Structure formats: C-alpha cells, structure tokens
Computed example of a mutant assay.
Amino acid sequence: MHFLYVDESGDPGRYNGSNTPHFILNGLVIPEEEWAAGLARMLAFREGVKQATGLPKKVEFHSSELIRPHKLDAYKQIHKSVRVRLLRDFVGLMPTFFPKARILSVCLDKQQLTAETNYQEIAWRLLLRGFDAFLKSQNQLGLVVSDDTNETALRLLFRSMRKESRPIIAILEDVVCRQSIHSYYVQAVDAIAFCLYQQEYPKGSTRKFNLHQLFKTLDTMLLKTAAPADPQGIIRA
C-alpha cells in the first residue's frame, strides 16, 4: 500500500497576465511501512524548531508564509533569515525523513495550452495516471490524500477515469481531502510544490536565497520514470 499526498502551486484559472502562468501539482508517494517512521521524524524536526525558535508544533509549516508571512502571526516573530533556513532544513532533510518515498510532479505552462483548457483537470489526470502506473509497476494499491481543493470536481473526475477504456485500477477510494494544518505530510508536499514553483518560475526577491535551487536537493526522490524525457521526471503538457 502506498499513500500519495498532493498539493498544488499556482492557480488553475486562465492566464490573464496578473495571475500565475502555470499550474503545478506535486505528489509525495509514501509506502505504508514508512508512514509512521516518517511522521515521527517530522515530529522530531518540529520539536527541534520549537526549541530553537519558539514556533509551536501546532502552527502549520507553510512554505510561502515562511518566506513572506501574511496570515500566520507566529512567523512574524522569527527573523526572515531564520525562516528561510527552516525551509531549507526541512526540504534538505526529506530524503532522510522518507528514504523510500518518491516525488511525482506535474507542471503545466498555461501559455502553451489553449485558454479554454481546464488546467486543474488536466494536471490531476496526469498525476493520477502517473500514480496508477507506478502502483501497477510495484504490484501495489494506493490512496490519494490532497490538500483541500475542489473535492466534488475531483470525485467526478476520478470516478470517470475508473470507467475509461484504460481505467484507473490500482488507486482505492475517491481522493481524500485534508486541511493542511492537520497533516504534516500535506505540509511536506506543500514545501515540495513551493520548491518546484521556485525552480520553474523564480522571482528576483527569492533568488538571493537560492530557493530556485532547492528542488534539486530532492533529486534522489524524484520519480523520473514518470516522464523519462524530462531530466527530473516532471510530467509536462
């Protein structure tokens, strides 16, 4: 059994020049036998963060807030250089947190697709197909857990994919939606999605921290067979 934890970066709406020109989905594939140990390692990491900075473990580890706090006041009490280091440490330790985990990535460039495209549906189709193919190759079954999103649309999409000529067969149940504040695993994949965003669409304000290089530190975890033509296995459309 494998769990796929999913989070997105960018908005799924039509690109109009003021919103994001991309839509990214990242999935963290966790084998069931590694789940408890991975959680324990993240808890230990958060305990260390609490001791060093005073940040309570119940405060969501949210990557964009670590860089530029807007909603979480607890981050405003921590110097920016320290927050950036926390993000770098968290991402850098992931191969140790989850030694057998894999990362599945989908990146859509909206400007290369038609304006009428349902970007979210396309990205989820690619992600679910990629996870299903991985599960079949491992002779395993899986469950998908996503950060809160359009649960109704996902349920309809997933059920329709079960009935297609090439049906999804290795993924059990509908996509389960969780609030990220209640799941350290969803918070982990939020950091992964943030790193891929920074790599694909780096901003001047974050370049000085080399955040656009962070995704490369996850190279050993990338499921490169998902898209063999891409050096990082990123599924693109």
Rank of each mutant, 00 (worst) to 15 (best):
residue 184 Y to C: 11
residue 54 G to C: 14
residue 188 A to K: 00
residue 59 V to M: 06
residue 163 K to F: 13
residue 20 T to N: 15
residue 31 P to M: 06
residue 145 V to K: 00
residue 157 L to A: 02
residue 121 E to L: 09
residue 42 M to Y: 10
residue 201 Y to N: 04
residue 22 H to R: 09
residue 144 V to A: 01
residue 76 K to W: 10
residue 100 K to T: 07
residue 94 M to E: 02
residue 34 E to Q: 11
residue 113 L to M: 07
residue 51 Q to W: 10
residue 173 E to P: 06
residue 85 R to Y: 12
residue 97 F to A: 00
residue 235 I to Q: 01
residue 156 L to F: 10
residue 104 L to Y: 02
residue 115 A to W: 11
residue 121 E to Y: 07
residue 127 L to S: 00
residue 19 N to C: 04
residue 68 R to Y: 14
residue 185 Y to M: 10
residue 171 I to E: 01
residue 219 D to E: 13
residue 164 E to A: 10
residue 75 Y to I: 01
residue 138 Q to F: 04
residue 188 A to Y: 03
residue 126 L to P: 03
residue 90 F to K: 02
residue 1 M to V: 13
residue 172 L to D: 12
residue 1 M to S: 11
residue 135 L to V: 04
residue 139 N to F: 14
residue 67 I to Y: 15
residue 79 H to E: 08
residue 190 D to I: 07
residue 74 A to I: 09
residue 45 F to E: 02
residue 230 D to F: 00
residue 107 C to N: 06
residue 11 D to F: 07
residue 149 T to P: 04
residue 183 S to H: 09
residue 128 L to C: 04
residue 155 R to T: 14
residue 227 A to I: 07
residue 104 L to W: 04
residue 186 V to L: 10
residue 230 D to W: 00
residue 167 P to Y: 07
residue 155 R to H: 12
residue 134 F to R: 02
residue 155 R to L: 11
residue 120 Q to D: 03
residue 180 S to I: 04
residue 165 S to F: 10
residue 59 V to L: 06
residue 73 D to Q: 14
residue 63 S to V: 10
residue 194 F to Y: 05
residue 209 F to E: 03
residue 205 S to E: 15
residue 1 M to G: 09
residue 31 P to A: 05
residue 215 F to I: 08
residue 220 T to G: 15
residue 192 I to W: 08
residue 38 G to K: 02
residue 195 C to R: 03
residue 105 S to F: 06
residue 222 L to C: 08
residue 53 T to Y: 08
residue 168 I to Q: 02
residue 88 R to A: 11
residue 78 I to S: 07
residue 198 Q to V: 06
residue 185 Y to E: 09
residue 48 G to P: 06
residue 2 H to K: 04
residue 186 V to N: 00
residue 199 Q to P: 04
residue 112 Q to E: 13
residue 15 Y to T: 05
residue 189 V to L: 10
residue 182 H to C: 08
residue 10 G to I: 06
residue 214 L to A: 05
residue 75 Y to D: 00
residue 221 M to A: 12
residue 2 H to F: 08
residue 44 A to P: 07
residue 87 L to F: 15
residue 25 L to E: 02
residue 89 D to W: 12
residue 221 M to W: 14
residue 86 L to S: 02
residue 52 A to C: 13
residue 23 F to E: 02
residue 4 L to W: 02
residue 110 K to I: 01
residue 44 A to C: 12
residue 65 E to W: 03
residue 88 R to S: 11
residue 58 K to W: 12
residue 107 C to D: 08
residue 108 L to T: 03
residue 187 Q to A: 01
residue 208 K to N: 12
residue 48 G to Y: 10
residue 28 L to S: 03
residue 182 H to K: 15
